[in-house]
Every structure is written in C-alpha cells, then in structure tokens.
Amino acid sequence: KYKEAKESFQRFLENHEKMTSTTRYKKAEQMFGEMEVWNAISERDRLEIYEDVL
C-alpha cells in the first residue's frame, strides 16, 4: 500500500499542470500540503521522488 502511495505521488507530480522544473519543493508543499496524496508518504520519500521527477 505504501508503494502505491509513492507511485501515486510520482504520477501526481508528473501530471500536475502547476509543476514545472522551476517549482521549488517548499512552494509545492504550500500548494499541495493539505492533500492526501502529499501526506500519504514520509517527507524523506516525498523529497526523493520530487527530486527524481524534476
């Protein structure tokens, strides 16, 4: 289930129109921090996936 959450988060970042190569992690956290997809995984994993996607 956790792996699915990580994959969902990656797809979310890859497909969200507001995500560009210039979007900083903290800005994304402000935009999406309340969303379930954002909070479903640990911050360490979130940051790792974020850096992989951008």
Rank of each mutant, 00 (worst) to 15 (best):
R44P: 14
R11A: 07
M19H: 14
S42K: 11
S42E: 14
E4F: 13
G33S: 11
F12S: 07
L47M: 14
E48H: 07
D52M: 15
R11P: 03
R46G: 05
F12P: 07
S42D: 06
M31C: 00
T20A: 04
E51T: 09
S42M: 09
R11W: 07
K3A: 00
H16G: 04
M31P: 00
S42L: 09
E14G: 06
I41D: 09
Y50F: 15
V53T: 10
F32N: 02
E34D: 14
Y50P: 10
K3H: 00
V37F: 01
E17K: 11
M19R: 05
S8H: 12
I41V: 15
M35G: 06
N39I: 00
E36V: 10
E51N: 13
E51C: 11
K27Y: 11
E36P: 12
R11E: 12
M35Y: 10
L13H: 09
W38V: 07
K18Y: 09
M31V: 03
A40V: 04
K27H: 13
F32S: 06
L13N: 06
Q10N: 07
H16I: 00
F12C: 05
A28L: 10
M35S: 11
I41L: 12
E7C: 06
K27I: 05
F9R: 03
D45Y: 02
E43Y: 00
K26A: 14
E7P: 00
G33N: 14
K6R: 13
E17A: 10
E34P: 04
M31F: 00
H16P: 02
F32T: 07
S8G: 08
N39C: 03
L13C: 04
K27Q: 10
Y2Q: 09
T23I: 08
W38N: 11
E4M: 08
E43K: 02
Q10F: 11
K6F: 03
S42R: 09
Y50C: 02
I49M: 03
A5C: 10
Y25L: 02
L13A: 08
T23Q: 05
F12R: 08
V53S: 06
L47R: 14
F9W: 00
L13Q: 03
I49V: 11
R44G: 12
A40Y: 01
W38D: 07
R24Y: 10
R44Y: 13
K3T: 10
K26P: 12
E14M: 14
E36H: 10
R11S: 14
V37I: 13
R46A: 05
E29D: 02
D45N: 05
R44I: 14
K3L: 05
F9N: 07
F32L: 04
M19V: 15
Y25K: 02
T23A: 06
K3M: 04
V53E: 07
F9Q: 06
K26F: 08
E43H: 01
D52G: 12
V53C: 14
A28P: 05
L13P: 04
E7Y: 06
Y2R: 03
S21R: 11
F12G: 08
E14D: 05
G33T: 02
K1G: 02
E7S: 08
K27C: 14
R11N: 15
E7A: 12
L47T: 12
A40C: 09
T22D: 14
Y25D: 08
Q30A: 10
S8N: 10
F32H: 02
I49L: 05
V37A: 09
E17D: 12
V53H: 01
K1R: 07
D45A: 03
E7W: 02
M31D: 04
E48C: 08
K26V: 13
V37P: 12
Y25C: 02
E51Y: 14
I41Q: 06
